[in-house]
Design a protein around this nucleic acid. Structure first.
Length: 604
RNA sequence: GCGCCCGUAGCUCAGCUGGAUAGAGCGGCGGCCUUCUAAGCCGCGGGUCGCAGGUUCGAGUCCUGCCGGGCGUGCCA
């Protein structure tokens, strides 16, 4: 239990007592109030506004309530001092025991610290990326990919059963255009109207097709060709740098999907027709000017939407209706779609469609992220698949890997970059900076902090044979340094941070938490050295005679336990972000850096 | 025009669902390595929280109206 939570319970207890003895009316026990760390240390370890928050229910002036509460709370052994401040804040100074208790919680839970009970939550389908399979994934797709994956991970960590799904738009205009463009390249024709001009990946694709399926090109079989092209977009063309394949690119970012759902299959199995028939039966369809409209305005949308065009083709939205109905029918309690801001109009439409079909629309939810503006040397950099200038994820990741001399560094940097911001702020991404900035990317700060913790534990093991026990211990009482207690306080807050981040679908909270944790520890570590204190005896001290008598072994052991608890939470946070927990990092000559070994923060 | 998102330090961004004197990183200036990792630590400088009202004990946070930027408002996906 976190320190705030423990204190909250004490305050609730005090209120219950006061209500029980008739000093305050019983309504005060149901009031909500805050328990938080004051910004200024003079205001104590924690402060609560309870007296202010319950003033209406208590029918007494806040200072008077505060006095009553202060008197009771002052008797608690976990509270050293209570002070009434300002209009009626209670400033509390806490006993070390309340912090030390967190240590046992962390060590007992291990990697599961902060996680909810597995499998008890909702069945959630997180759909993300779903980029058209008409080219390689671009750096701008990375935000949705990484955000979606992190949101899914967060939901899992609080106990939901999550499925990650990619919806493949393998039907309709874009795909036909792709096939027509491929043919144009293969046969040396002009690209089709609105199609894709000759480029690296189309050439690689054509070369592959000419080797493996020459008949598709020779016979002008557009539909069959389109299907083969989609497969190649997903799986890649062997040996092609320009077309590594969407699945492989996602894997390089450590993203695995559980399902790949084909739009084309919705049509093939008649689900689109069935969904529209159902809408029609319910009176939601109307023909106007030769096109078929879904009257989404009846369900709160801004305007009606076309589902079947005048040319007889279904719109993508028609498939989407069938797709989301299918998600509900597959038994999901919640449908989370991670979408770029350019799709924000989509929410009302899909909800309207679900409602019209008599399905529970409140299960549908959108996590919106703002778009990524690409810059090059500070200037806007036009992007889009139709232009020749594509910046692929592959390219950026490879370049950072190389600069950092570690496979995975690029994924770490990119994941950090995208996750360390709220999803609703627009990001400016300078391509040159993104590639070069790998060295001062803040992700290395996080990884370095973790490596330092590991390094201390390693030294304890190697030089002193000290193995850190993974359970609570009476040694916790030996932790007295204010920084040590403060960090325990922060560790205790981790579960709340995780559940909040999950509830709000805001992974950036995890990264900021880690940043602060890292800062706390590294600051402590340097200060300790400056004060001449150590966690373990240093080599120089061990060279002196009688060092063993002077060594407070218990204190070292207590601090190792403490470091292990920090490492545990740290690893859990990195794991949530999908960032590699490096056990060692060494600065190399010059600017380059590399890791010698690495370890995935393992959750088992 | 209408709808959604954003506006906080020179730059990039946090601000824990309304709390006390608004924070971090980068950049600038100045310090700290013969010892547990200097990819680090400490200090200094830097702000009318876009503007104006409102709600209340209390507003960066909630409400309204403006201003500025992004996106949407296609029988494109």
């Amino acid at each position: 239990m976190g320190v705030e939570e423990q204190v909250r319970n004490l305050v609730v207890g005090a209120l219950t007592d006061l209500a029980g003895s008739g000093v305050l009316p019983s309504e005060v026990t149901s009031a909500t109030f805050s328990v938080e760390r004051p910004k200024r240390p003079e205001h104590g370890d924690l402060a609560t506004n309870a007296a202010l928050a319950i003033q209406k229910a208590a029918k007494k002036p806040p200072r008077e309530i505060a006095t009553l509460l202060a008197e009771r709370l002052g008797k608690e052994p976990d509270i050293r001092a209570v002070e009434i401040a300002g209009p009626g804040f209670l400033n509390l100074r806490l006993a070390p025991a309340i912090y030390q208790r967190v240590l046992g919680d962390v060590l007992a839970a291990g990697p599961a610290f902060g996680r909810g009970p597995a499998g008890l939550g909702e069945r959630v389908l997180v759909e993300f990326v779903s980029a058209n399979p008409t080219g390689p994934l671009l750096i701008s797709h990375g935000r949705g990919a990484i955000l979606g994956d992190a949101v899914a991970t967060l939901l899992e960590s609080v106990g939901h059963r999550v499925t990650r799904e990619y919806y493949i738009n393998d039907f309709g205009n874009q795909i036909r255009l792709l096939a027509a463009s491929v043919l144009a390249v293969a046969l040396g024709r002009e690209p089709p109207e609105g199609g894709y001009g000759k480029n690296d990946y189309l050439e690689d694709l054509v070369a592959w097709l000419q080797k493996t399926n020459p008949e598709l090109i020779a016979d002008d079989k557009v539909d069959e060709l389109a299907r083969v092209c989609v497969t190649r977009m997903l799986d890649g063309v062997p040996g092609s740098k320009a077309l590594p394949g969407i699945k492989k690119t996602l894997a390089s970012l450590r993203i695995q999907f559980d399902g790949w759902y084909s739009e084309e299959s919705l049509h093939r199995w008649g689900r689109v027709g069935a969904a529209l028939a159902e809408l029609n039966a319910r009176g939601y369809l109307e023909e106007r000017e030769g096109a078929l409209f879904f009257k989404s305005t009846d369900e709160g949308d801004d305007k009606d939407r076309v589902v079947k065009k005048r040319d007889g083709y279904y719109t993508y939205f028609a498939s989407d209706i069938a797709y989301h109905a299918d998600k509900i029918n597959r038994g999901y309690d919640r449908l989370v779609n991670v979408l770029g801001a350019d799709h924000h109009g989509y929410t009302a439409r899909v909800r309207g469609a679900l409602a019209a079909l008599g399905l529970p629309k409140e299960r549908f939810e959108v996590v919106l992220y703002q778009l990524v503006n690409l810059l090059r040397d500070g200037k806007p950099y036009k992007m889009g698949k139709r232009l020749g200038n594509l910046v692929t994820i592959e390219e950026v990741v490879d370049e950072i890997d190389e600069a950092a001399r570690r496979k995975g560094a690029g994924a770490d940097a990119l994941r950090y970059f995208y996750l360390a911001r709220r999803s609703d702020t627009t990001i400016d991404l300078d391509i040159e900076l993104a590639k070069k900035a790998s060295m001062d990317n803040p992700v290395f700060y996080l990884q370095y902090g973790y490596a330092r913790l590991c390094s201390i534990l390693r030294r304890a093991q190697e030089k002193f044979g000290l193995q850190v026990p993974r359970h609570a211990s009476a040694l916790a009482a030996r932790l007295e340094h204010p920084d040590e207690l403060a960090i325990l306080g922060r560790l205790g807050r981790f579960p709340a941070v995780v559940s909040e981040a999950a509830a709000l679908r805001e992974p950036h909270r995890i990264l900021f938490y880690l940043q602060e944790l890292s800062q706390d520890f590294q600051s402590y570590f340097t200060r300790l050295k400056k004060d001449g204190d150590t966690i373990l005896p240093l080599d120089a001290q061990m060279a002196e005679a009688g060092w063993q008598e002077k060594w407070d072994r218990q204190k070292s052991e207590a601090r190792l336990l403490w470091i292990e608890s920090i490492r545990t939470v740290y690893a859990a946070g990195l794991k949530l972000a999908g960032i590699t927990a490096l056990e060692r990092m060494h600065k190399l000559e010059g600017e380059a850096a590399a890791a010698e070994t690495e370890e995935e923060a393992e959750a088992s």
